[in-house]
Amino acid sequence: MTTLRLLLCLLLIPVIEPLLVPAPARAHVFYVSVTRVKWNADEARLDVSVRIFTDDLEEAIIAEGGPRLRLWTDQAREDRDRHVADYLTSRVAFRVNGVDRDLAWAGMEDALDATACLVQITDVDRVETIEVENRILIDLFDTQANVMRFEIAGEKKYVNLGKRTVRGTVEFGS
């Protein structure tokens, strides 16, 4: 009897499934971006990759008056890189060894539900301190967490930024 009831219960799942609205249009509720900063000593360059959930990124660009980019679809806009680069450079700022530095856009990649945005800071032949400011998505989501991971000559450091703390400083080689 119990086996029969168990079978009935398990049958319930495929029976309910097709009745549902296909894929409820529910945005994910995990508001996190992860930024990786790695020093390439040979090229004297900081390689920065910023992973942002693609739907959040699109929403943020629209909120700033930009177009819907439809990233990673057949209808993706031609000028998508410029819009993403503009958003990113308006939200993230770096000060390396006490000097404000510009971010050079290096492209983006599809990373499942996220988009990995790649930027570079050139002419960095040593890294003592990095001061960062990260305002990614904080005006859209109260619980947005912006994790930053630094790897400089094998030394790894993390800072966890968000709405309450938008700036952080990391020191290396001390």
């Binding site: 119990t2 009831r5 319930l12 799942i13 309910i16 499934e17 549902l20």
Partner: peptide
């Protein structure tokens, strides 16, 4: 796929609630 998982999660909640009320399983095997 994320969409399928996002649909199945509420199914697990609903199934748990229905079983709380219906109690199809009793005793040790239950």
């Amino acid at each position: 796929p994320t969409d399928l998982v996002e649909t199945l999660i509420p199914v697990t909640i609903l199934a748990t609630c229905l079983m709380n009320v219906w109690r199809p399983f009793e005793g040790k095997i239950g």
